[in-house]
């Protein structure tokens, strides 16, 4: 099995990739948001367009992701000890999130097939797909022996618990911040 942490990309590159994946994932929602606020506050084509929607869409999710992963892995380092390769664990998680975001981006097109249920499906799929990818990644990370076997439970609790909490919170925010109520 390929060890993705063996050849590490530079930090700016991996952050950029994560950001772009979040941009793609959030594009659909951000288009609507920019369209609404652009109309309300008189922004013209210079701002309320797809390019801005793409690049702005990834900012907030990236910030949340980086913040959460920073604290989660900081705590993991303290909890699991330095002898475990927490740095590789964190590095590899970026790829899991990128893959999840690309799949979610593709799933946004469900609106074309079922617009009535697209919102419902997105609210379900966003956390579910991410949860699945993070779970698969943790299984991979255990295979790669990034952390000791006796600490699997702690790692799963810490990482997946954080993702459930964050994505659940984001879903609630999305419900409350529906712009055209």
């Amino acid at each position: 099995m390929i060890n993705i942490a063996k050849k590490k990309l530079p930090l700016p590159v991996i952050v950029l990739l994560v950001y772009l994946s979040f941009c793609a994932m959030s594009l659909y929602t951000m288009r609507g948001t920019l369209a609404w606020y652009g109309e309300q506050y008189g922004f013209g084509a210079w701002f309320a367009n797809d390019v801005w929607a793409f690049f702005l869409g990834g900012l907030i999710p990236l910030g949340i992701y980086e913040l959460i992963s920073f604290f989660v892995f900081k705590m993991m380092t303290v909890r699991l000890g330095r002898q475990n390769d927490v740095a590789s664990l964190r590095y590899g998680l970026n790829f899991a999130v990128i893959a999840a975001n690309i799949v979610l981006f593709a799933l946004k097109f469900v609106y074309i097939a079922a617009p009535l249920y697209a919102s419902l499906l997105n609210i379900i799929l966003d956390p579910a797909v991410t949860f699945i990818f993070v779970g698969l990644y943790l299984w991979y990370a255990f295979k790669q022996n990034y952390i000791d076997k006796t600490l699997y439970r702690a790692a799963v609790t810490q990482v997946m618990g954080a993702f459930i909490a964050v994505y659940g919170l984001l879903a609630l925010i999305r419900i409350m911040m529906s712009v055209a109520v």
Binding site: Y28, T29, R31, G32, T33, L34, A35, W36, Y111, I112, P115, L116, A118, S119, L120, N122, I123, R174, I175, S178, V179, A180, V181
Partner: peptide, 21 residues
């Protein structure tokens, strides 16, 4: 077309969970 932005996620203006211009 589908290119038209979909504005709401959940609560639509007209009783549906999506909204377009």
């Amino acid at each position: 077309t589908q290119k038209s932005p979909v504005i709401t996620d959940v609560s639509g203006l007209n009783g549906i969970p999506y909204f377009q211009w």
